[in-house]
């Protein structure tokens, strides 16, 4: 018998026990990416050539190299400089930084999609630059990119298993531990696969719905 239902049911609670770690890592990294991504988008738009150039270079470098290696870099190198944080925190930071480079591009596309007339109208009404951004531009820029952001959230979710490389015990890592105890990997690894499939496919359907709704209410 390749698949043992009883065994699968036995280990399920143990697997789900660490589901909060996977979820926390996903949401935490997404929050980092959202905030840092916006900062990067502003830095790239800066009229200061140096700032915008350096940001561009850093963004290109980070998004061209593996997040998995970046995680190791943070995990092993930060302590050498006296910065210590838990493996999970390191993971959240690492994945967050990596995806912030993608989100900065998304923000940029959103900001570029706001018509020029909106800027001119905001200036004509004598808004301060801060008001201009917060009340006029960003609300319009973010609306059309919400579905894209949703897709990045899903992508991030599917990237969290790599945190096991830096000793975070998330779902896949837990499956590996359970498997090594009983020498049966089939059930735990398959269950983790189903967990990811169900959540990410379900979420992608939600994003599609959202996309349609956002378009309808244009």
């Amino acid at each position: 018998m390749v698949w043992d239902w009883k065994y699968a049911l036995d280990i399920l609670p143990g697997l789900l026990e660490v589901a909060p770690v996977t979820i926390l890592a996903t949401l935490g990294a997404f929050a980092v990416a959202l905030i840092l991504g916006l900062g990067l988008a502003f830095a790239r738009r800066s009229t200061n050539r140096l700032l915008s150039g350096v940001t561009h270079a850093v963004v290109e470098f980070i998004r061209s190299t593996p997040p998995f290696v970046q995680l190791f870099f943070l995990f092993f190198v930060m302590p050498q400089f006296g910065v210590t944080m838990s493996a999970l925190m390191t993971g959240i930071l690492g994945l967050g930084i990596h995806y912030s480079t993608f989100l900065s591009e998304v923000y940029r596309a959103g900001i570029d999609s706001v018509e020029k007339g909106q800027w001119e109208a905001a200036t004509a009404l004598n808004f301060t630059p801060r008001q201009k951004w917060m009340r006029i531009i960003l609300p319009q820029a973010i609306r059309p990119i919400i579905p894209v952001m949703g897709n990045y959230l899903i992508t991030l979710f599917k990237e969290t298993p790599m945190l096991l490389g830096i000793t975070v015990v998330e779902m896949l890592s837990q499956a590996q531990i359970i498997g090594s105890q009983s020498f049966r990997y089939t059930e735990p690894v398959t269950l983790v696969g189903i967990f990811f499939l169900v959540l990410s496919y379900g979420a992608s359907l939600l994003v599609k719905r959202l996309e349609i709704r956002l378009n309808v209410h244009r």
């Binding site: 390749v2 599917k158 696969g193």
Partner: peptide, 19 residues
């Protein structure tokens, strides 16, 4: 698309031999 690359890797690596 839905099951994550690393999970697929582990599945091929750990589970296939059992089959």
């Amino acid at each position: 698309r839905g099951t994550s690359l690393l999970v697929q890797l582990f599945w091929l690596f750990y589970v296939l031999p059992f089959m």
